[in-house]
Structure formats: structure tokens, C-alpha cells
Design a protein around this nucleic acid. Structure first.
Length: 1016
RNA sequence: GCGGCUGUGGCGGAAUUGGCAGACGCGCUAGAUUUAGGAUCUAGUGCCCAACGGGCGUGGAGGUUCGAGUCCUCUCAGCCGCACCA
């Protein structure tokens, strides 16, 4: 190591050489390579700790300062855990498939594989500069065939399974569970044996009472459909955001409010398209319930719960008035072709709705269908046809965002048809309105304008009846700002005026300013009158059930996952499509299905609102797309999987990254899972984490993984923000783009020094007045903003590392504030941490001679030095355990300050301190450890343990308060009891004088803290 | 609109969970030092006042308590998520 000699000669803290040296050392010695239990030499007696970072998407811009925030934190924890005797798995890889690479490829005519490879190299180089203790031998990239072979394999498992939601089983962890992913063969066997059948829509029917069709009577295509209707991965036609110009489906987030594509501003249309779907909703309950046992931030759990959006209520059937009548409580079919007294699951010519408020059924005065509802065409009367069709056509082309824009007024059309309210036999009009979404519930609602704000708005707009069926609480009725104008003066305390209010509500609920949507007491509901909302819900549902027109139901906001993209740079689907519409999964031995080499990734543009949908780019790879098998022609699927696919299981691949047979060997999986700590940004709070949990549960059901949940503990790092300026118009610009307006109107750009003062908010007042944005000359104010390319305030870690070193960078980011808080980057603060590292360096090294400092002494440390050390060990350890890394570093500062005061540095104190420093500034600590005479890395040295008796001072200062205000301080023994404390406090001269002429009422003593004297 | 989070000096942030508000760092002030180094060391640094004393201070207003940054009620501001979910 020639570099060391030079360092010794100069003796200064030369971070460049030290960091290069130790990074080389770690690499050469494979210091952080960790073994799997079956590997030769593995020590399975140690406890395991699996720490995972959210792996990055390698974009062209390279790493920014936000990435390493979480990575530094996990690295510190990993280094700490190793020293605490854990086998630590700490891997890193790249989420390498995705749209940006493809867009870049189209614009610059390069292959996404090439740019991705180059970007990965940049990222890897940058990540290595930080000295992270990753086991690089486990690196993966999701775009490599070795990797996506298994992504395809997992997809096949979903294609080959279905969710048996009634199967009761005990999972390997001993939990009683209902519902499980099961091989599709078991479903087919049940069909074949005649145990199960299907309904008219080829959906599964288990009981034999319900009218159903049997397997033997189904055509080949129908059988395939019946099975497809259950598969976890299936093909279905769904309404999507189709952008003809871009030639792809867009996510809702990629569509602007005026129905155009975010990228390119092209028109976007709602189109029903055949897409791969994953049946994630079957896991809704488990995705919800299993959150309870996870050590995640509550807000994230809440976001996931809201996303799943489970609600309970009832499905209710509203028969069409032209086809059904009620005679003597029995349903009578008017068309003659339907069975009288139909069963719930087979009630022809009726509208099924979902409601969370079956108790308000008597208040349902009209119905609304979503414009896309399949019954719309059937029920419109001839005279309404034109108007309805125009409305439906309009709604069809609106994006979801457009339709749900909040300020929008209610629109709709009457169909001319009526339905029968099953609770009272009354005929109610059926309307069509886009405030009802096809994607939720049944796509149809019963409207209760008396107790639903949206229905009320609609009813008022179209002059529909409003019937109150829930009497609000007195408290609600009595609110002044809600009461009708003519009842403003009543005395709400009297029972008589409450009666007036109730009568007024009964007569015209719309005269109250707000709609009552809460729980109350049923009115106008015949035999259910007087029941509480909760009771009424159950009773009405039971009543409906007994008449086969309703049943309890559960609904989710969660939608099935649209899983295909019309793009090149993603995982191909491992399936073949036959000419007759059959889709088969490939055999495992045929994986991976590699992407064909191509050089043109452009979508085929289509003009305007055409129904034709062009082929995805993969369609141009003609030879690849066609496969001959068993004498028949098959076609590959031309779609690819979305970017989420690879990240749904990467944490499993890290466990066994080079296994070419299976995605992850079971023994290793059982050893390492679940992940003990998962750190990443809150932007993945819902989608990635939900999708990955879903895949994991499928793998768990099928016996491929051993834990119900992948990520036991989750931690969200906060965003690194930037100081910026906001102009009076609201534009945000970086400090560098500011200037001072001179008297002649010209603008002088801010100097670096002035920028600093701007950031610190302490520019001289006359400068603040002249502060303007350079380009527009508009006045600005200081704000904290997101770092963004357009703001030109992105800080590149490379330059900071070059200037101050990786150890300083790591320390600075950890010292900025709490890990989970958003905080602004301030380069000005970096030198403070650089100074800390220099001071730590000088605790050991004499800067001039380069030898160990003469103050470093081999004598027994003083009590004071020991107290300092053990206090520091205690603090650092406790803060590390809680991921409070900012205050842990504050403890390091305190130690160095303390040592500076003490002068001499006993080796017995300095050595453990170097170990405490090592997770934070590993290069520095390794170098000092070597200079202290140790021959090998400190990465596996035991973590220092503090001795409580040494950490404590014998004496402690206690505050003495009078009436809660500190008036004096006394010094007492740490263990002094309450009585002693009180005595010493009362004896204090100052306290004595302040108590002159006052009566002591009470004395509160908190041991070791304070004495509070209550006196007047 | 609904839900969540956050408001503490000139700046970033501490505060043992109801017990001395402002740890630690940045910046600033003064001094020492010279090995002129992205130095170091010492002292100071919340605000106000008639200044070895006193008053006020954790977005604002109330409240509970011997005692509140911390708990309760109301309120303001900022950020994030969802958004016609029946």
C-alpha cells in the first residue's frame, strides 16, 4: 500500500487517499460478502438481519443527494449490526426496465439496453464512492434475462393459479386463513367432476340450487373463458386511457386534466382494450388485515388501507318496472319468459346496486347508471334515445380525471325507464350520469338524495323527489348555521322547539343547509321506523335476503391491476396465443422469453379517435412474434410487463442471485426472510409496496416463500429539499437565479456570499427590498422547495465527495435532521461535519509528524474520561437502535468537545470511540483503527458496551423552582432522595430570601430533576 | 371536500415522552495563536428592558396541571395523500 506511506509523512486528514485505500481493501478482502446458510463456512448460529434499500431506477442524470440519504442510514445500521454479531444481508441492484429508457431511446436513436447499461455503471461507480458495505456479489438488474426469467416464471405461477376464496387452511406459520391461491388444475377438476358449474357470465357457481350451466355443456371456448374468469393472471377487456399518437395505454397520472397526454400533449381516449390483468382484489382482505402485524409508519398503513378501501354494505336488486310487478308480495314477471320468484344471483331484467346504506332504501327516489353500464342500451325508451346516446358518447371520451374534477356540476339524462324499489314497490326513474363510475360497485346506484350529498345535488339540479328517511340527532338539527331561515330564532334548549325542528326536517329536509349523512333514527320506513341506523341496516338487509332481492356485500376501491404495456423495454409475457383464441403458458424450460433485438421502438401513430389499435413495437419483430408448435401457428404476446414487475420480488432474488434453476432457494429464503428493515421514500407508500405484498402472498400461498409478509419493518426517509425563491407570480427559482435591482433598473446577479445569506434568511434589509429574479425582474420570497431539474437546484453528490470526502457527506446527510423528516439541503453546513472528522483524526494522529499523537497515552483513563466514553457509548447505541442518527452524531460531537477539554487521550477511551465512529465514517475509522495498531478491518469488532456505573456522574445539578419558575440550582448526589432534595432546596440562600413572607403550600420533588415550591 | 403530517433563535435542528426550552452543528461577535491551514483554541450568542437584576418566549387563542413545546378544545399556516368510492 504505497498510499499509506505518503499519508504518514504528511499527517493531515487526507480523505481522498484514505477513502480510496479502504474501499480497495474492502473489495480485495470481500469484507462485506455474506454467506447463505448452505454455503461452506457459513455461521448459522448468528442471528440474521436483512436490510433492504429501495433499489434505484438508473436514470441518465445519475445519483442525486436524495438517493444516498436512505442508503447512508441503512449502511450505518448494517455496520452496527455486524459489530453486534449479526449476519447482515445488505444488497443493492437496479430497477432497470422502464419507460424513461425507452423514451430516451426513441429520441436519441440508441438502444435502451445500451443506455441502461451505461447508467448502471455510473450508478454503481457513484454508490461505491460512498463506501457502502453492500455485498456487491449479489447485485441484480431487472432487465437481465437471468433475472426476468424468474419474473416471467412468477407471472406463470399466477397464470396457472386461481384464488379459492372459500378454502380454509392453516398456513405454515400456524395462522388460520380463509382463501388461498391454488393450482388451476384443482378448479378444472371440480368443474369436470360436476361439483361446480358456471352462471350465464361463465362465472364460478359452487352450489347446485342456483340455476347454472355444467362443464359438459360448455363449448371449448366457454370452458376456456370459465377458467380464465378465475385465473390470477387473466386477459380482460377494460376501459383504459388510450393515446393513439403515442401508441400506448397511459396511466391516469399520465393524463392531463383536459384529457391530453402529459408527454406530447396528444389527445387521449377511453377505450376498452384487451389487457393482462392481475386479480389483486382477491387479496384485498389479507392485504388489509396483515398490515396490523407490520412495523410500519401508521400514515403509510393508513394510505394502504384507504387504497384498498374496503366497505361493507348490501347488494340490492331493483327490477325493471316494465318487466316486473309485485303481486301479493311476490314478484310477477310481465314478459312471461322469466321464472317467477327468481333467486338473487339470477334475477333477470333488473339493476343490481351496491350500497353502504341499505337503511336508507325507503329514501331511494331514483336510480343512476354509469354511462358505460351494459343495461343502458337495453332500457332507454325510443323518445329518449337521441339524448341518452349523445350523453353517453360524451362521457365515453372523457378521461377519468376529467369526469371526477371536483368543481364540476352534476350532469345526466333520464332514460325514460323505471325500476321498482324492492322495499315499497314504488316505481322510480332511472337516470344516467357520469358521477356514477362503472369501476366501483356495480356501476349503478340507488340514489338517496335525502342522505347523500351528491344525490342531493343531482336531485336539486333535475328536480327529483327528496324523502327523509333518517331523523338526524338533536345536536345536528340544532346547529344554527344549518337550520332553515324561519327557524333561526327558536330556543333549541326546549323540547317544543326541538319538535318544531324535527317536524321541519320531516317536511322538507332540503330547507336545512346541509345534507344529513350520518347515523340517526329511521323514519318514513314503515316497519323499520324508530330503529337506529346500525340496526336498520341489518334488519333491512335480512328482509331483502328473505325475498331474494338483496344480500350483504363487501366492496373495495382497489381495482384489478392492469398489467400490460404496449412498450418494448419490459419483460415479455411467457405465453403463446393460438389462432382460435386459446392462450397457453410456456413451459418453465422455455424461459426466459428474451426480448428480440430491435432498433426502432417508436409506436405506430394512428390519426384521431380511431377504434383501430396498432401493434405494440414488439409486433415488428416478426420472426420472434410467431412460433410454430404441434403443427399450429402461435403468436407471442406483443405487450410487456409494467415497470413494477421487477421490483415486486427483487428482495427475494438478492437472497440467491445466481441460482439459475429457481428464483430463490428455499433454505436461504427461510433463513433471510422477512426483511428486518426496508428503507425508502414515501412515494412508494402505496403502489410498489402493495404490489410487492400481493406477489409475495401469492408465492406464499403456493408454497414458494415462508412468510406472509415481505417487509416486516418499513421506514420512510424524508425528502431532501432545497432553498429556493418564489416570485410574486408563484414561479420558484433557485438562489443562483436571483439578483439585486440597481437604481438604474439593471440587475446584478447575487454573489455566492449573498446567495448564502439568502439561504440563511439574513440578507441586509435594503438588499431584500431589491431582491428580484434575474430574468423577469420580479420580487421574490424565500421558500423551501422540492429539488428538481427545472429548478436547477439539484445537488450532485460527486462534487461534495470530491471536496470533502464520502465520510463527511455521510455524516452531513445523517446530521441534517430526523431521517423521516423533509429537510432542506444546505451546502454551507457541510464544513461543520468536515471539521468533526478532522478533529476525530487529530484525536489519534499528530498532523505534523504523521505519527500517533503524543497526547494519545497508554495510561489508565480518568473517571471523567471514562464517564465521557460510557455516556457516549450509551447515547450512540440507543440512538442507533431508534434510527435517530442526527442525535447520535451530536453525541460524537460532544465526545470530541469533551476530549478536547481533557487534553490527554487515553488509548482505552479512544479505541472504543473509533469503533463508535465506524458506522458513520467507516473509512476514517478504519484508518485510525489501523494506526492504533490493529491488523485487520474493524467491521467485525464487537460493538462497545457501556457500563452504567461509569457513565453516571455522582453529582447532579437540580433546578429549584418557585411556582414553576427556575430560581436557583443546587448540586446533590445522584441518588439523593426526595426528602434530602427538599431540605437542600429549602436551605438555599436565594430560595430562602425569595420565600420571605410567603406560605409554602406544597413542595413537588422529582428525583434527579427538580424541586418545585408552591408558595404565595 | 376527506384523511394524514409539520409549525421551536439569523439557519438546520435538540428536549429522557408532562419536569431546567434552545443540546449539537452552521452562521455571527470578541480575543488568543501561527504550523497561513478549507486551520486551531478560548469566551459569548433566543428576544426585550433603566441590564451582576428583571420581564417575555416553542404559529395563534383558550383550558387542564404544582409544572405544558409535549395533554385537551378551538383556530391559522405550510406540506403530502385521496378525491363524485355510492
Amino acid at each position: 500500500m504505497s498510499g499509506t506511506e505518503r499519508i504518514e509523512k504528511r499527517g493531515r486528514y487526507n480523505f481522498t487517499e484514505i477513502e480510496a485505500k479502504w474501499q480497495r481493501y474492502w473489495q480485495e478482502h470481500e469484507t462485506f460478502k455474506v454467506l447463505n446458510p448452505s454455503d461452506c463456512g457459513a455461521d448459522t448460529s448468528k442471528p440474521k438481519y436483512y436490510v433492504l434499500d429501495m433499489f434505484p431506477y438508473p436514470s441518465g442524470a445519475g445519483l442525486h443527494v436524495g438517493h444516498p440519504l436512505g442508503y447512508c442510514a441503512t449502511d450505518i445500521i448494517c455496520r452496527y449490526k455486524r459489530m453486534r454479531g449479526f449476519n447482515v444481508l445488505h444488497p443493492m441492484g437496479f430497477d432497470a426496465f422502464g419507460l424513461p429508457a425507452e423514451q430516451y431511446a426513441i429520441e436519441h436513436n440508441v438502444h435502451p439496453a445500451d443506455t441502461t447499461r451505461a447508467n448502471i455503471e455510473t450508478y454503481r461507480r457513484q454508490l461505491k464512492m460512498f463506501g457502502f458495505s453492500y455485498d456487491w456479489s449479489r447485485e441484480v438488474a431487472t432487465c437481465e434475462p437471468d433475472y426476468y426469467k424468474h419474473t416471467q416464471w412468477i407471472f406463470l405461477q399466477m397464470f396457472k393459479s386461481w384464488y379459492d376464496d372459500q378454502l380454509e387452511w392453516t398456513d405454515p406459520q400456524g395462522n388460520q386463513t380463509i382463501g388461498r391461491a391454488t393450482p388451476i388444475e384443482e378448479l378444472v377438476a371440480q368443474f369436470k367432476s360436476g361439483a361446480w358449474g358456471v352462471d350465464a357470465d361463465l362465472e364460478l357457481v359452487r352450489d347446485k340450487e342456483t340455476p347454472r350451466r355444467e362443464w359438459v355443456d360448455l363449448s371449448k371456448a366457454e370452458r376456456r373463458q370459465a377458467v380464465n374468469n378465475q385465473r390470477l393472471a387473466f386477459i380482460d377487456e377494460v376501459a383504459v386511457n388510450w393515446c393513439p399518437a403515442l401508441g400506448t395505454v397511459l396511466a391516469n397520472e399520465e393524463v392531463t386534466n383536459d384529457g391530453r397526454s402529459e408527454r406530447g400533449n396528444h389527445p387521449v381516449y377511453r377505450r376498452p382494450l384487451r389487457q393482462w390483468m392481475l386479480r389483486i382484489t382477491r387479496y384485498g382482505d389479507r392485504l388489509l388485515n396483515d398490515l396490523d402485524d407490520l412495523d410500519w409508519p401508521e400514515p403509510i398503513k393508513l394510505m394502504q388501507r384507504n387504497w384498498v378501501g374496503r366497505s361493507t354494505g348490501a347488494e340490492v336488486i331493483f327490477p325493471l318496472a316494465k318487466d316486473w310487478a309485485v303481486e301479493g308480495g311476490e314478484w310477477k314477471c310481465l314478459c312471461g319468459s322469466c321464472a317467477d320468484q327468481p333467486v338473487f344471483s339470477d334475477f333477470p331484467r333488473s339493476i343490481k346496486v351496491y350500497t353502504t346504506r341499505p337503511d336508507t332504501l325507503f329514501g331511494a327516489t331514483y336510480m343512476v347508471l354509469a354511462p358505460e353500464h351494459p343495461l343502458v342500451g337495453e332500457i332507454i325508451t325510443d323518445e329518449r334515445k337521441g339524448e341518452v346516446e349523445t350523453y353517453v358518447a360524451q362521457a365515453r371520451n372523457k378521461s377519468e380525471l376529467d369526469r371526477t374534477a371536483d368543481t364540476k356540476e352534476k350532469t345526466g339524462v333520464f332514460t325514460g325507464a323505471y325500476a321498482i324499489n324492492p322495499v315499497n314497490g314504488k316505481e322510480i326513474p332511472i337516470w344516467i350520469a357520469d358521477y356514477v363510475l362503472m369501476g366501483y360497485g356495480t356501476g349503478a346506484i340507488m340514489a338517496v338524495p335525502g342522505h347523500d350529498t351528491r344525490d342531493c345535488e343531482f336531485a336539486k339540479a333535475f328536480d327529483l323527489r327528496i324523502i327523509p328517511v333518517v331523523m338526524p340527532t338533536d345536536e345536528w338539527l340544532a346547529q344554527e348555521e344549518i337550520r332553515p331561515a324561519d327557524l333561526q330564532d327558536v330556543d333549541v334548549l326546549s323540547e317544543a322547539s326541538m319538535r318544531d325542528l324535527r317536524d321541519a326536517y320531516r317536511k322538507s329536509p332540503e330547507s336545512f343547509v346541509e345534507v344529513f349523512v350520518d347515523q340517526g333514527v329511521a323514519i318514513n320506513s314503515q316497519q323499520f321506523d324508530g330503529m337506529s341506523t346500525a340496526e336498520c341496516k341489518t334488519k333491512i338487509t335480512k328482509w331483502l335476503e328473505s325475498r331474494c332481492v338483496g344480500r350483504t356485500a363487501v366492496n373495495y376501491k382497489l381495482r384489478e391491476w392492469i398489467f400490460s404495456r404496449q412498450k418494448y423495454w419490459g419483460e415479455p409475457f411467457p405465453v403463446l396465443h393460438g389462432e382460435d383464441g386459446e392462450t397457453i403458458g410456456l413451459d418453465e424450460s422455455e424461459l426466459p422469453v428474451e426480448l428480440p433485438p430491435m432498433d426502432n421502438f417508436k409506436p405506430t401513430p394512428v390519426e384521431g379517435d380511431s377504434d383501430s389499435v396498432p401493434e405494440p413495437p414488439l409486433g415488428r419483430a416478426k420472426a420472434w412474434a410467431t412460433v410454430e408448435r404441434d403443427g399450429k401457428d402461435w403468436r407471442r404476446d406483443l405487450n410487456t410487463m409494467p415497470q413494477w414487475a421487477g421490483s415486486c420480488w427483487y428482495y427475494l432474488r438478492f437472497i440467491d442471485p445466481h441460482n439459475s434453476d429457481i428464483f430463490c432457494a428455499s433454505e436461504a429464503e427461510r433463513y433471510w426472510m422477512p426483511i428486518d428493515l426496508y428503507v425508502g421514500g414515501a412515494e412508494h407508500a402505496v403502489l410498489h409496496l402493495l404490489y410487492a405484498r400481493f406477489w409475495h402472498k401469492v408465492l406464499f400461498d403456493l408454497g414458494h416463500v415462508s412468510t406472509r409478509e415481505p417487509f416486516q419493518r418499513l421506514f420512510n426517509q424524508g425528502m431532501i429539499q432545497s432553498f429556493a425563491a418564489r416570485t410574486s407570480r408563484g414561479t420558484v427559482v433557485a438562489p443562483k437565479q436571483l439578483g439585486l435591482q440597481e437604481a438604474d433598473g439593471s440587475i446584478t446577479p447575487l454573489t455566492d456570499d449573498q446567495c448564502m445569506h439568502f439561504v440563511n434568511d439574513d440578507l441586509p434589509e435594503e438588499d431584500v427590498k431589491r431582491l428580484v429574479e434575474q430574468e423577469g425582474g420580479e420580487p421574490v420570497a424565500r421558500v423551501v422547495a422540492k429539488m428538481s431539474k427545472s429548478l436547477k437546484n439539484v445537488v450532485n453528490p460527486d462534487s461534495i465527495i470530491a471536496e470533502y470526502g464520502a465520510d463527511t457527506f455521510r455524516m452531513y446527510e445523517m446530521y441534517m435532521g430526523p431521517l423521516d423528516a423533509a429537510k432542506p439541503w444546505n451546502t454551507q453546513d457541510v464544513p461543520g461535519l468536515f471539521r468533526l472528522n478532522q478533529r476525530i483524526w487529530r484525536l489519534v494522529v499528530d498532523e505534523f509528524t504523521g505519527e500517533n499523537s503524543v497526547d494519545l497515552v497508554d495510561v489508565e483513563p480518568s473517571d471523567e474520561a471514562l464517564r465521557l466514553l460510557h455516556g457516549t457509548i450509551k447515547r450512540v447505541t440507543e440512538e442507533l437502535e431508534q434510527l435517530k442518527l442526527n442525535t447520535a452524531i451530536a453525541a460524537l460531537f460532544d465526545f470530541v468537545n469533551g476530549m478536547t477539554k481533557l487534553g490527554k487521550r487515553p488509548r482505552k477511551v479512544i479505541e472504543p470511540f473509533v469503533l463508535l465512529v465506524s458506522p458513520f465514517a467507516p473509512h476514517l475509522a478504519e484508518e485510525l483503527w489501523a494506526r492504533l495498531g490493529h491488523g485487520k478491518t474493524l467491521a467485525y469488532e464487537p460493538w462497545p458496551v457501556h457500563d452504567e456505573t461509569l457513565a453516571k456522574d455522582d453529582e447532579v445539578e437540580v433546578a429549584v423552582q418557585i411556582m414553576g419558575k427556575v430560581k436557583a440550582r443546587i448540586t446533590v448526589h445522584v441518588d439523593a432522595d426526595e426528602k434530602t432534595l427538599e431540605k437542600v432546596a429549602m436551605a438555599d440562600a436565594k430560595i430562602q430570601s425569595l420565600l420571605q413572607g410567603k406560605t409554602v403550600r406544597k413542595v413537588i420533588v422529582v428525583k434527579g430533576r427538580l424541586v418545585n415550591i408552591v408558595a404565595n
